[in-house]
Simulated assay, not measured.
Amino acid sequence: MAKIGIYGSSFDPITNVHLFTASTVASRCRLEKVIFLPCSSKRKDKKMNTDDEHRWNMLTMALEEEREREIVADSFEMEQDPWKITTYETMKHFKGQYPNDDVYFIMGADLLVDIGSGKWSNGEKLVEENKFIVMARDNIDMLRTISHSPILRNNDDGTTFHLIDKGLAMEISSSYIREEFSNGGEPKYLLPNSCYYYIKEHGLYED
């Protein structure tokens, strides 16, 4: 039985921190595969700064450089109706793709807070039926977050949450890189080389 991690984000753009995070989580949690899952630009609850084609192209270019572990991209959510798909349906899809494996949703502690406070559609079913790898964010106390949320606490069987509390809370974000491009900065070494030149070529994130 293998262990598969689903890493969802906008990847707008993908950064070296995303790659570092995926590699580190795979190593610490003994994952055989990490699947990068970009969300759709059609979502009404989250504004994208580039369309799906550009984000997908940059993601696949970045992962072509990854050789040490099986880290791949999947366009599943990009292809779905954004009003009919939630993380619950996404995880159901991937568990169907890997019926003999353990499938984990990789997320930051900030999302754990959101799920625990009832902000996610199908949040209780999501926690009840799935497993999660949760990375430290913004000094959030992950154990306290779980213990103070009925949704998280009452659906935790002891193996639901794998908490990673050291070494992954890094400040460089996609939004910071977008701001650097917009302000004429030079974020070349914060994202994969191929993606940097792709952004320059297509004039992405310009003010």
Rank of each mutant, 00 (worst) to 15 (best):
L163Q: 11
D157E: 10
H148A: 09
R153K: 14
M135V: 07
L126R: 07
P150W: 02
N130F: 14
S173R: 03
T145N: 02
H162C: 10
L168Q: 05
T160G: 09
E171W: 01
S149R: 02
D138C: 05
G158N: 12
I133P: 14
S147G: 08
I151D: 09
I146M: 07
I151P: 07
K125S: 09
E128R: 15
T159Y: 15
L143D: 02
I164K: 13
G158L: 06
K166T: 11
I133K: 15
L152H: 10
V134I: 14
A169D: 15
I140W: 07
I151T: 05
L163K: 00
T145S: 05
L143S: 07
E129Q: 13
I140N: 03
M142W: 10
R137W: 04
I146Y: 05
I146F: 08
K131N: 13
F161D: 08
A136V: 12
G167K: 05
R153I: 01
D165H: 10
L143Q: 12
I172K: 04
R144C: 06
E171T: 13
L143R: 15
F132C: 05
D156H: 09
L163M: 13
H148K: 10
P150L: 00
V134F: 11
G167S: 03
S149H: 04
L126Q: 09
L143I: 10
P150R: 01
K131Y: 11
I140E: 06
A136M: 11
A136F: 08
S173D: 08
E129V: 01
D156C: 05
G167W: 09
D141N: 14
D157V: 07
S174P: 00
L143A: 13
T159W: 14
P150C: 00
S147H: 12
D165I: 04
I164V: 14
R144Y: 09
I140H: 05
F161Y: 10
L152F: 06
E124A: 04
K166N: 11
I133C: 11
L126P: 03
D165C: 12
D138F: 08
I146C: 07
S173Q: 01
E171L: 10
G167C: 04
R153L: 06
H162T: 15
M170D: 01
L163V: 11
N154H: 13
E128C: 08
I140K: 03
S149V: 02
K166G: 03
N155K: 03
D157S: 06
A169R: 04
G158R: 08
E171R: 12
N130L: 12
I140R: 02
I151Y: 00
I172E: 10
T160M: 02
N139S: 13
L163H: 08
N155G: 02
K131D: 09
M142V: 07
T145Y: 01
L152S: 06
D157Q: 06
